[in-house]
Design a protein around this nucleic acid. Sequence first.
DNA 1: TACTAAGTTGATTCTTTTTGTCAACATTAG
DNA 2: CTAATGTTGACAAAAAGAATCAACTTAGTA
Lengths: 147, 147
Amino acid sequence: MKLSTKGRYGVRALLDLALHQDEGLVPLKDIARRQEVSLPYLEHLITPLVAAGLVKSTRGARGGVSLVKPPSEIKLSEAVQLLEGSIAPVDCVNDPKLCHRSAYCVTRDIWSEMKNAMSQVLDSTTIQDLVERQRQKGQPETEMYHI
Amino acid sequence: MKLSTKGRYGVRALLDLALHQDEGLVPLKDIARRQEVSLPYLEHLITPLVAAGLVKSTRGARGGVSLVKPPSEIKLSEAVQLLEGSIAPVDCVNDPKLCHRSAYCVTRDIWSEMKNAMSQVLDSTTIQDLVERQRQKGQPETEMYHI
DNA sequence: TACTAAGTTGATTCTTTTTGTCAACATTAG
DNA sequence: CTAATGTTGACAAAAAGAATCAACTTAGTA
Ligand code: FES
Ligand code: FES
């Protein structure tokens, strides 16, 4: 039941972006440096977010990425879904046809409950919530990693 | 956020065992057949359950495995923990030292909440609950797969 | 216009985890 | 004794994860 680096780094990238959006377009390079993720990898993480219209990217010199919606309207469930795919512990929770036992499989019911419990958390948390928590903790994300 | 086959097959093995425990020792071969898992693989799934004292095994002819505790005392959280290890979405939820950012990482707080939500489900469900649900669904586990 | 700083895309590679299989062995019932 | 069973550890195939790289496109600016 581990989250992959896509989900972890991707959410952190969104948070970083939200924390710096008042500075205008944010180059991926800056996010990569602050979040300690390699730039080539971050490029792949940002792709699905751009494709989904969550993030807007601007090419060229002085380019960078920016949030399309305000952070308060970006639910973590949306971000995680884009980055990791469905959060369901087993695929047959989303599509019963994937398991030929699903009609009478009681463990599937439990995995489904787990999915709901997780969704509950991710649906009720937005990037804005993370921003506020971060500011309370001393906003190190904006202060550290200056050389 | 997927469960591996260890967790899925292992829980199903425990359920199968609970459903057949009145028949005495249950050979792994029977569980493997009913649950459609290869016998050699099932042997590895049962090992940690035996080591933890959840399941007792008896070698030799007419041997097999049996539950040590009544199904109502076996929480799914216990089984999944044994089979999959910690349910935490990221390891630093269990041990903050694993991430050097953990002191000010707000995403970690969210992953921690997710872990709690999942634990809530798995802590409040026992093998006995699964047995009862299975019987309500028509107990196919005890009726099917006879050749 | 050139040059440079970005983001885009797809191929490729390396590593780790998952998912098993197999064989040799130990134990017990009958 | 022997057949049925669980035990253990080595091994391996396949899939997924985690990047890396290079060629390309786009846009600002001198
Ligand atoms: S796990 Fe898919 S139906 Fe049981
Ligand atoms: S994910 Fe481990 S501290 Fe942020």
